[in-house]
């Protein structure tokens, strides 16, 4: 487990199924100011792959490696 990061915002997507996690994540990142840190908590297995891949494809950077927390994943992404 890496050092705890202080996120500016948290997007809690637990329970939502695809494609909503990836849509919500990209839209939220778009709305934030550049450099702000977004924490995303998601538990839809499809989103474990499409959220990080699409965040990167859309030009955002990860603050640290994705964290697997039981049946959910936590991502830290810079807007």
């Amino acid at each position: 487990m890496q050092a705890k990061l202080e996120a500016d915002f948290t997007l809690d997507l637990r329970g939502e199924s695809c494609p909503y996690p990836v849509i919500y994540t990209l839209e939220t990142l778009e709305g934030l100011n550049k450099g702000e840190l977004l924490q995303v908590i998601t538990d839809c297995p499809g989103s474990f792959r499409n959220v990080p891949e699409e965040a990167i494809a859309h030009g955002y950077k990860f603050a640290q490696d994705p964290v697997k927390n039981g049946q959910e994943y936590i991502f830290h992404i810079y807007a």
């Binding site: 705890k4 202080e6 996120a7 500016d8 915002f9 948290t10 997007l11 809690d12 997507l13 637990r14 939502e16 494609p19 909503y20 849509i23 919500y24 939220t28 924490q39 908590i41 964290v67 927390n69 039981g70 049946q71 959910e72 936590i74």
Partner: peptide
């Protein structure tokens, strides 16, 4: 899917939120 009324607003909060206790 992209329309506002269809997708709804996600829960976005300030700061960190706690992950589920394992």
């Amino acid at each position: 899917t992209k329309t506002r009324w269809w997708k709804g607003k996600p829960s976005l909060t300030r700061g960190n939120a706690k992950p589920t206790q394992l």
